[in-house]
Design a protein around this nucleic acid. Structure first.
Lengths: 339, 339
DNA sequence: ACCCATAACGAAAACGGTTTCGTGTTGATA
DNA sequence: TATCAACACGAAACCGTTTTCGTTATGGGT
């Protein structure tokens, strides 16, 4: 086991000072050709690498960014992470991932763990519990310390910071309109409670599309689940008690499960009933029939978030200007809708 | 913006020395009751938190663990990450996630980025390119520096370190046997090239089950894709040219896609053809029909890896003993097989 | 009055770098 | 020969902690 070599080791071995070694390795003009070559050769030979921690302490820059998301396993969030990771790595940053598991407490704990020097900034998506409690003091504390934050997808207006979202309302509108254009009249929606920013927006888009096209919004056609977790019984009851010819779902799991329910009842998809979900994941692609979805471009959102964050981290400027980037969703048409 | 407060700030403000503040905050017996109370109150008031980076530099311990995996979006790996993150967090560690994207170069770069003090140890799953090249010098360098490594799922015998895998051969054996017990005779397998440790083991398990039950292994019933990426055309050709009544697939995507192909050809599942995949993800649960799978218990694997790593990191002992933990897979029977 | 243990605190080194500011040695110039 | 710039390098501060090892008082014991 050969231990890591430090500047001090090189200095001792070559009988020069630490500063000389440091400068030589940075190819400083201050050091003579001979000395530089000697030191650089020695460093190469012993595979010298500067200690990141020491550099972080000196620069007060860690080149780490903290990512706090509600769920690592959910497809959408994994694509966001991939986007963040990809962009961040390209700029020499590492990504520390923490899952809040939709829990307020875990979100707070994770942020506190990271906020004491471990990271240069946060990218986060609020846990459902946080959105429900509407308590953002942990975010306020962090921003007040001057740590940049980018909120992505699940955001709040209570915090002033950069934000990246897709236009959920437009996405739902596009989906509902697609169904309307296909002649559907009895369009249902399976969504979650309104405290989730994205669900609220999607529900609004759905309503807007209906009213704009002269279809009355019927509350009995709207199922609001209490969380993003699957509740098979509630969905079953909903299908039993409601007469529908199209269903919009706020995620792909609800949609695919609903399709199976419909199929088991002998309905043909999309002839008898059409389906559209949110999130363009494997489930949608490989479901049978394949699912038409509103694609959220998670990877793109991740990349943009990372870019906004790193730009802010590296900008000297003290300007307190924040922007909200709104991406346009895309309707990916597959076999669960006509056409 | 209230900047972070340091020991020095407290010391200056209270007109004591830095050492006194440090000791007082650790409730050292050396410091008088009065002084401690005063300092602790002040620290609480100004919300003092020690700087992690400084502590890391001092202790040569970061409380970070580096995770390098081939793909963040793949369901199995996300469950592994979740397990790691869950366990690590409970023990006060953070998780730095890097994706190698199945690329050797990215794997090397990521490890080098992290190996210079940023982490206390690695948990990794080899990229397919690495397994193909069979080049593990980057791992050797890291272990030689005394950085603990735990390999998970995609492992190699070339490196001595702790390992966590599931018994892939057994998993495939169980799956094939299930099909045989149901009277299937023409059992195919869709797998990937043998350089992937897991695929090799699965193929062996499949062969073993067949030969043990008097079924001849027919190479024409074995499709070996060059990578984990979906190749729709090759699978289509395979189905066109091969007479099968059951198919084992090394992941759930291959399986679900294959099921759709079979369905499109008018075959009934599981009556005419049965399917079993690996990885118990959403796809398997919500496919139609739902897919029987060999569950790999990714989260459990992650937790165990994290435990092994952290135990090693925190153990003073210089013992060079490594263990390989082999988990048993579970067959999750659903509707793509009879029963 | 002297010795010494003890309590309470501070100085300083250390972790591994970066960077500013000397400083001693050249050689050229006036 | 005195002056001075340029060159090549070293000393030391600094980032924020922890920790060892003093160093003062104070008071008790004799």
């Amino acid at each position: 086991m050969k231990a890591k070599i430090t500047l001090k080791d090189i200095a001792r071995e070559l009988e020069v000072s630490i500063s000389t070694v440091s400068k030589a390795l940075k190819n400083s003009e201050e050091i003579s050709r001979d000395t530089k070559e000697k030191i650089q050769a020695f460093a190469k030979l012993y595979n010298y690498r500067p200690n990141n921690i020491a550099i972080s302490l000196k620069n007060k820059r860690t080149k780490n960014i903290g990512v706090v998301i509600p769920d690592i396993v959910h497809h959408f969030f994994t694509t966001v992470i991939r986007g963040i990771e990809k962009y961040a790595n390209a700029r020499g940053y590492n990504v520390i991932v923490c899952s809040s598991d939709e829990s307020f407490d875990r979100e707070v704990i994770n942020m506190e763990m990271l906020a004491n020097g471990s990271i240069d900034g946060f990218i986060m998506s609020l846990s459902s519990e946080t959105q429900k409690k509407n308590d953002y003091n942990h975010l306020k504390e962090v921003t007040e310390q001057g740590i940049p934050v980018v909120l992505v997808d699940r955001i709040t207006n209570e915090i002033e910071c950069d934000k990246v979202i897709i236009d959920d309302q437009l996405g739902a509108y596009m989906a509902a309109k697609k169904m309307i254009d296909q002649g559907r009249k009895k369009i249902g929606i399976i969504t979650t409670a309104d405290y989730l920013s994205v669900s609220r927006a999607r529900t609004e888009g759905y309503k807007k599309a209906l009213t704009e096209h002269g279809i009355e919004v019927d509350e009995s056609r709207m199922l609001k689940l209490s969380s993003m977790d699957m509740d098979e019984d509630l969905i079953r009851d909903f299908f039993d008690s409601t007469d529908l010819d199209a269903v919009l779902c706020v995620n792909e799991i609800f949609a695919v499960f609903s399709m199976r329910l419909a199929q088991k009842r002998g309905l043909r998809i999309p002839e008898d009933m059409s389906f559209i979900g949110f999130t363009d994941g494997f489930l949608s692609q490989y479901a049978y029939p394949s699912l038409t979805v509103v694609a959220q471009h998670g990877q793109k959102m991740g990349e943009i978030s990372a870019q906004m964050l790193i730009d802010k981290v590296e900008s000297e400027a003290e300007e307190e200007t924040y922007q909200t980037k709104i991406l346009e969703p895309t309707l990916v048409v597959r076999d669960s809708t006509i056409n």
